[in-house]
Amino acid sequence: MNPLLTVNNVKLTIENKPILKGVNLVVRKGEIHAILGPNGAGKSTLASLIMGINDLKEPTEGEIIFKGKILNGLEIYERARLGLTLAWQDPARFEGITVEEYLKISGKDNPELDVVECLELVGLDCSYLGRFVDETLSGGERKRVELASILAMRPELAILDEPDSGIDFVSMEDIANMIKTMRERGTTVLMITHREEIAEVADRATLMCDGKVVQTGSPKEVGEKFKTMCVKCEVRNPELVGGE
């Protein structure tokens, strides 16, 4: 498969603190790629840097390339026009917009848009169409609506930051099926998670720790490395090995 997204030796320093320390990553067109790692590993920072949000438009060193175009310095709307989108771990509220309007705006360039189907795929029924995307929805409901908007949009690459966050009552199987549906409909998925159960749905997985890539391989191999390495991690838990 051809690479859709390439991260070349990306380093990021914020206030003299190194956050990303030479990250290399290739996401192939048409795959589900999981980035697995403990909290604080730099996963969400990398996602923000790829999307250009949170004032992270370019790395301190290195390049991020999407469809052969260098993203460094581009605005978020320019990246979105190229076919990139990101589902935040904590989804936003949109006062005065109904769920139906939100999904139709998201899917305005999708000629096959079916808003009811998008809701059903994330475990919501058509009664939500008239609800507003505001504080009347729970965090879990907003997260599902946001994921439905990704299905409506059909971007070339969707970055899902902790897709299971806030939706504990949805089974792992439901989440996995939704992500597979995204891929079946032409969306490459880059999934950020700290749970190896979620990473199992991926075609390939990358383990990150302390701002670095530790290993890339099959989800099973990377999941096993995550479980064995992160239990007694010298970086995250120095007290377990006699550090300070």
Rank of each mutant, 00 (worst) to 15 (best):
E239Q: 14
L84Y: 12
M153S: 06
E117F: 06
W88K: 10
K225D: 14
T85V: 12
E101D: 13
T60K: 07
P3M: 09
N39K: 10
V170M: 15
T181Y: 14
N237I: 10
G107R: 02
T45K: 03
N54L: 12
I32M: 12
G223D: 11
E234G: 13
V222N: 11
L82G: 08
G166V: 10
D55V: 03
L5Q: 09
S171R: 07
E196I: 08
G52Y: 04
G186A: 11
L36A: 03
G123D: 00
I105T: 08
V222D: 12
N2D: 15
D168G: 14
D90N: 14
G166M: 11
Y102T: 05
T188Q: 08
L86H: 10
L119R: 00
L129R: 01
A92F: 10
E234S: 13
I70R: 13
R236I: 11
E197T: 11
L119T: 00
V145S: 00
L82C: 10
I70M: 09
V145Y: 00
R79Y: 14
D55W: 05
G211A: 07
I150K: 01
P38T: 07
E95G: 09
I150V: 15
A205H: 02
A87L: 12
G37L: 07
L36S: 02
F132V: 03
E196S: 13
G223S: 15
G211S: 06
T193N: 02
V235C: 11
T136M: 02
G123M: 02
V99Y: 02
K67L: 05
M191E: 03
L36M: 06
T228C: 07
N237F: 15
D161L: 05
T6I: 12
N177L: 14
S48N: 14
A158G: 01
I50F: 05
D203N: 14
T181Q: 12
A148E: 01
P18I: 09
T193I: 08
L74R: 01
V23R: 04
H194C: 08
P219S: 13
Q89R: 06
V26C: 06
R93M: 15
A80C: 14
M153F: 09
R142N: 00
M1I: 07
K225V: 13
A202E: 05
R185G: 06
A47P: 02
R154P: 00
F132A: 01
K225A: 15
A47M: 12
K29N: 14
L113M: 07
P18S: 15
C230N: 13
I32S: 05
G123I: 01
L74K: 05
K69L: 07
V122N: 00
L25K: 06
K220W: 11
A205D: 04
N16M: 10
G123L: 02
L49C: 02
G243P: 04
E224H: 09
C233I: 09
E156R: 05
V222Q: 12
L46C: 03
C233S: 13
L157D: 02
L46A: 02
I159E: 04
R81Y: 12
E200H: 08
E112I: 05
G62Q: 03
A34Y: 01
V115Y: 00
G96H: 08
A92W: 05
V7H: 07
L12M: 09
E78M: 09
